[in-house]
Design a binder for these strands. Structure first.
Lengths: 149, 149
DNA sequence: CCAAGTTTGTTGATGTGTCATCATAAGGTG
DNA sequence: CACCTTATGATGACACATCAACAAACTTGG
C-alpha cells in the first residue's frame, strides 16, 4: 500500500519539479513581458486561430480550463485590452473571444524568450531517448487519467 | 528556436498531465477527507517529525514554499485546529508548528485513499524501466532548474 | 561592543481559482 | 408543439497565492 523508496522519490520529484518549473517560468514571463502563464496559455490558441477569433467554449477545451475560470480570466484580460468579447452568430448563448492588436503584440513579444526558457529548463537536459520515453510515458499516463471518473 | 513536433507534444503533454493530475488529486482528497493538497503537503512532514513539531522555517524548506504562503496557510489550518503555533526556544524570531491530535487524525484518515489515487493515476501505468528513466530524468531536470538564477 | 546587514515570520493589498448558482438558449423526446 | 434535459457563459462569495513592506531578532565585521 505505501510507496517504496523509488516510487516515493519519483513522485516527490515529479511534484517538486513541476512546482519549481512553474515558478521559474511564471516569474521570467511576468518580468520580461508582464504576462502570466495563464495569459500566455490563452494567447497561444487565440494567436493560432484565423482572425484571432475563438469561441469561449472551444478556448476552454483548448487550454483545459473550467468555464468559470475562463470567464473570470477573460474579464481581466479584457480590462487590459488583450482581448475583446463578441456575440456568437451561430449560438445565442455563446461568446466569441477576439485577440486585439495589443494582445497579438504581447504574445509576439513574449514568445521567443519564453520558448528559450522552456528549452533551457526542460528540453535541453533531455536526450532524444529521453524525449521518446517521455512521449510514451505521458501518453499512457494521460490515458490512465482519462479513465479516472 | 521554435519547438519541433515531438518537443511541442512532450512539453504540452507535461503541462496537461500535471494540470489534470493535480485537479483529480485535489478533488478526491477534498471530497474524501476535507483536506486540500496544500494541507496534505504540510501534514506529511509534520506527521513524520518527532512529536509532530517542526520549525516554520524548516517546514517551508521541506515543502518548497515561500514563507508568506506558509504563514497564511498555517493561520487557516490553525483556525481549523489542525495545528497550533508555539514559540521557538532556540530563536526568539522563530515559530514552532505543532500537529494537533485532530491534525494527525486527519492525515491518518486521508493518506490511504490519497496514496491509492496516486498509484492508480501515476505509478500503476509505469513499468520498472519507466520509473528508472523518470528517476534519472527528474534528477537531471532539477539540477538544470537549480542552475537557473 | 556596535552598527550594518541578514534572517525569520507576519500582515494587508491585490490578483487568481473554485464553487454554487443563475439566466438563457439548444437539443431531444413524447 | 410542450416538456425536460443539457450546454453555455456570467456572477458573487470565498479560499488561496504573491508581493511589498514591516518588526523583531540574530549575525558579522569593524
Amino acid at each position: 500500500m505505501w510507496l517504496n523508496d523509488r516510487e516515493a522519490r519519483v513522485w516527490r520529484a515529479h511534484l517538486a519539479l513541476h512546482r519549481d518549473l512553474q515558478a521559474v517560468l511564471e516569474r521570467r514571463l511576468a518580468r520580461d513581458s508582464g504576462l502570466s502563464l495563464a495569459d500566455y496559455a490563452l494567447l497561444v490558441p487565440l494567436s493560432e486561430s484565423p482572425d484571432g477569433l475563438v469561441r469561449a467554449r472551444d478556448l476552454a477545451t483548448a487550454v483545459g480550463w473550467e468555464r468559470s475560470r475562463l470567464s473570470h480570466h477573460l474579464s481581466r484580460m479584457e480590462s487590459r485590452a488583450l482581448i475583446t468579447r463578441e456575440t456568437c452568430p451561430d449560438d445565442a448563448r455563446g461568446a466569441m473571444v477576439r485577440l486585439t492588436p495589443e494582445g497579438r503584440a504581447a504574445i509576439t513579444a513574449a514568445a521567443p524568450d519564453h520558448v528559450a526558457t522552456v528549452r533551457r529548463t526542460f528540453l535541453d537536459p533531455l536526450t532524444d531517448a529521453d524525449l521518446a520515453a517521455l512521449d510514451d510515458i505521458y501518453s499512457r499516463l494521460s490515458a490512465a487519467l482519462a479513465a479516472e471518473e
